[in-house]
């Protein structure tokens, strides 16, 4: 019985200790702990993810801007982009803190609707970011204009292949908004501006590197006169690079999307011509700017474009490009 009691006491003590220790730690890092009643307006951000480079960049941008504007932000997100319930719990918890504004990137718009309505009834403005939230609650949507970014990729592809020849697309999927926008933006630009370029039927590799590599190899063997391949996200791009390398074909012009170490390396060594990238840091910044405006009751446009950048061997080491690339 004695050992048990000791164990119980130790357990309790350890728990209390770890809680207070981390509590203090967190309080400092979070900039003032749980109190949202201070002078700084508090913006709660619920993202689609948390540990990925992309989301960390959004977080950094948001924190940077918040510091500039004298606001306080918290940034949370579920471990994977399929944890819809966990994201709903996070949004619930953040609503309980009565923030001055909420930044939200919905994994599933419909599931979040009741909570968005709750935010509305509490008069908390919601700013959607990254992808649109299918609801009339958000006051604005801060996101990359994927169609415009894909058109930029098309423009560079057209220049690279000299305005004529066959070009293929390897896209991550045909169901998500980013997938369709990055496909359509590319194809529409080509249709309108490059009549001599033949765009092959888009192929979908689920963003999976291996699958995209296999697709790339079959495209190459089916089209010996192929001039270039456009890959619509990081996974597709790595797959395309791999597939071209395995096929042994040279002289193909590759254009990618996003960044990541493998893609950046390929652009450095010339196996990929260049890529368009979103600007996650700017997304975080614009999110906080929009939130502050919403808190002040200012009118906001329906959507805010956070921009994109084209990068290739020539500008990859520029400071402003380096800032938006992640490894």
């Amino acid at each position: 019985m004695k050992i048990r009691k000791a164990g119980a006491i130790m357990a309790g003590a350890a728990l209390a200790l770890s809680l207070t220790a981390c509590g203090e730690d967190g309080g400092n890092a979070g900039g003032g702990g749980g109190g949202g009643n201070g002078e700084q307006p508090y913006i709660a951000i619920v993202s689609k993810g948390f540990q990925h480079q992309f989301w960390q960049a959004v977080k950094n941008g948001a924190e940077e801007e918040a510091e500039k504007q004298g606001a306080r932000v918290t940034f949370v997100g579920p471990p994977t982009e399929s944890d819809v319930e966990e994201q709903i719990n996070m949004l619930t918890n953040d609503l309980a803190k009565s923030p001055a504004a909420i930044g939200f990137a919905a994994l599933d718009s419909q599931s979040a609707e009741p909570l968005l309505q709750q935010a509305k009834s509490q008069n908390i403005p919601v700013i959607a970011f990254d992808s649109g939230v299918d609801s009339d609650v958000p006051v604005t949507t801060v996101s990359t204009d994927n169609k415009a970014a894909a058109a930029e990729a098309a423009k560079h592809m057209s220049e690279l292949v000299g305005g004529k020849g066959k070009v293929a697309l390897v896209v991550h999927d045909q169901t998500s908004k980013s997938g369709t926008d990055r496909r359509d933006g590319f194809m529409e630009w080509m249709e309108q501006n490059a009549p001599d370029i033949e765009v092959l039927e888009p192929q979908y590799g689920g963003g999976d590197q291996l699958e995209s590599a296999n697709i790339t190899k079959s495209i190459i063997s089916a089209n010996p006169d192929l001039k270039g391949i456009y890959a619509a996200n990081e996974g597709s791009a790595i797959g395309v690079i791999k597939g071209v390398e395995e096929s042994g074909k040279t002289g193909l012009k590759l254009v990618g999307f996003d960044s990541g170490k493998a893609q950046v390396d390929a652009i450095r060594d010339g196996s990929m011509a260049g890529a368009v990238t979103q600007d996650p840091v700017n997304m975080g910044r614009e999110l906080v700017i929009a939130a502050m405006k919403a808190i002040d009751g200012e009118e906001l446009p329906k959507s805010i474009d956070t921009g994109f950048k084209w990068y290739d061997k020539s500008n990859i080491d520029d400071a402003e490009i380096k800032a938006v690339l992640y490894e």
Partner: peptide, 14 residues
């Protein structure tokens, strides 16, 4: 714990 730590604005890592 999940709720309280988030309400206290403790960073997610912790």
């Amino acid at each position: 714990l999940n709720n309280g730590l988030q309400i206290m604005s403790i960073p997610q890592e912790w």
